[in-house]
């Protein structure tokens, strides 16, 4: 370490740093060029679009409206009149935000716990190949087929309810048609589908933990649980960071399951941010408003990411 510091001091600034930056850019370039052209530029267009009124068509039909789109989606006039309760109780955006947040808060920890538990169980065990494949299966199969299956499973007298009834709980309602249960059916399907996916990530990460570390812990007399807490979990931090950022993002972007299973209903019980965006963009042709809603989503996700990001830095600086 000291040697490095000395060298660092010697070449502190100047040509070498520039050359190093060039090297870094040469690593980035192949990906960044494609990324910039096909993703970043369109995304920047979308950011700008949130300040315009546009129904599609020629670019000449763009009409600059400033923050009007935001005022509309936040129901600014009504909120000023009736208070913030109106926003969360009646405005589409408020309800979509509430539903999406609830869904995210439940789904993310649930999926992470399930995925991590599965990965730990399947890390070194006979027959793991079979189980790993089984748990990854849901992620691999096509969304339509899966959702249709689950809608049927969750029917009033479907197998899930029959199972619940057999446990002695009196529950006799179709999940997707019930205001409180509908969102839980979305959560159930999401966890079921994604736990295998994140399990794979954790499995891959577990391979990266130096065996010396666990061995040292065993020698120190740590039991399995302590080993898990003090060695495995900290070592998995970069992966957990990735998993939680990706999950928060994908939860905030939940669309397919809702579109196929509940269509946002009953009423607005499962209306999510992206179902709302889809509706505004493609059903009502208000691309400006759709972009504005996306910006709300972007801000939330970025805020969460930056918090997670800085805590990651703190961790690696230790």
């Amino acid at each position: 370490m000291s040697q490095a510091e000395v060298r660092k001091g010697r070449y502190k600034m100047g040509r070498l740093e520039k050359k190093n930056t060039l090297i870094a850019y040469s690593f980035l370039a192949p990906n960044f060029i494609g990324f910039a052209v096909f993703t970043l530029i369109p995304v920047i267009c979308a950011v700008a679009l949130s300040l315009f009124e546009w129904g599609g068509g020629d670019i000449s039909r763009l009409k600059f409206v400033g923050l009007d789109n935001y005022a509309t989606i936040f129901a600014a006039k009504k909120v000023a009149e009736k208070g913030i309760g109106y926003f969360f109780g009646r405005a589409d955006l408020g309800i979509a935000l509430k539903n999406t947040a609830f869904y995210t808060v439940v789904t993310v920890p649930l999926t992470i716990v399930c995925a991590l538990a599965l990965a730990m169980l399947l890390n070194k065990i006979r027959g793991a190949v079979f189980f790993r494949t089984v748990f990854f299966f849901p992620y691999v199969s096509s969304m339509v087929a899966i959702c249709v299956c689950w809608s049927f499973m969750l029917m009033r007298n479907g197998p899930v309810n029959q199972f619940i009834m057999a446990l002695g709980i009196d529950f006799n309602k179709g999940w997707t048609a019930d205001s409180t249960m509908a969102i839980w059916s979305i959560i159930l399907v999401s966890v079921w589908r994604n736990m295998g996916y994140y399990m794979v990530l954790y499995l891959a990460a577990l391979q990266g933990i130096p065996r010396e570390l666990t061995e040292a812990a065993t020698v120190d007399g740590a039991n399995k649980w302590q080993q898990f807490l003090h060695v495995t979990l900290p070592q998995l931090k970069p992966t957990t960071f990735f998993v939680s950022v990706m999950m928060v993002i994908s939860c905030f972007k939940i669309y397919d399951v809702v579109a196929i299973m509940t269509e946002g209903g009953p009423g607005r019980a499962t209306k999510m941010l992206v179902t709302y965006i889809y509706d505004e963009a493609f059903v009502k042709n208000r691309y400006g408003q759709a972009s504005a809603i996306s910006m709300v989503l972007l801000v939330i996700v970025l805020a969460i990411t930056i918090i997670q990001f800085s805590s990651e830095k703190k961790f690696s600086n230790d």
Binding site: D178, S179, G265, P266, G267
Partner: peptide, 19 residues
């Protein structure tokens, strides 16, 4: 009309599901 459609359909689903 597209906005009205959304509202009427949402409330319709609540009535039909007996919510």
């Amino acid at each position: 009309v597209p906005d009205i459609k959304t509202i009427v359909n949402e409330e319709h689903s609540l009535i039909m599901a007996r919510e």
